[in-house]
Amino acid sequence: MPASSEWIIKDQTVVSNSWRILEAEVGVDELADMEQQAILAPLDFWLAERSTLQARKGLTGVWLDSNEKPGSLIVDSTFDINEIPLIAVNFPVFSDGRGYSTARALRQNLGYEGDLMAIGDVLRDQVFYLKRCGFNILMPRADQDAEIMLTAFADFKTGYQASIDQPEPLFRRR
C-alpha cells in the first residue's frame, strides 16, 4: 500500500499534497473522520460505495493497483470518467511497468482528461517515461529529492514515438 507524502510534483512543479490515500481494506465507517479531506479510494471500495462517496463534501478520487484494469472504472454506459477529479495508479515496485499502459489507456482509450497521478515506488529515473505516458502528477517515494526529481523532466529533448504528451510521432515532425 503506497503511503501519502507531504509533497507531490504537479505539472513539473513541487506543491504540497492534499490527497490522502486510503488502504485497500478501508471501511465506510472510517470516512466520517475525513469528511472535508481529498481522498483516493481503492478501486473495489470506490466501486462498492459510490453513492456514499458521491455524498461526501471533500474530493474523492480513485487509485488503481498495477494489476487493475482502467476499464473497471466504467461502471455503466452513462458514466463520464471525467467526473473523477483524480485517478492514481500504483507502482508497487518501479520495475512493474503495467502502470504505464494503464495511464496511456486512461488518456487515449477512455479519454480521461483529469489529473493522473503516479503513486508508490515512483523514482527519479522513471519520471520522463511517466510524463510521456500521461501522468501529470507524481507522488515520489518518501526518500526522493524534489530538486533531483525535477531535473528528470529534461532527460530527453524529444522522443521517437507517439505519446500522450506528444501525439505526433517524430516521423511526422522531422
Binding site: G97, S101, Q126, R132, Y160, Q161
Partner: peptide, 17 residues
C-alpha cells in the same frame, strides 16, 4: 530502422515482464 526508432525509449514498454 522504423522499428528501431519506435522501440528506442518507448515510454510505455521500458519495464516489460
Amino acid at each position: 530502422e522504423i522499428i528501431r526508432q519506435w522501440s528506442t525509449f518507448h515510454p510505455e514498454f521500458a519495464f516489460l515482464p
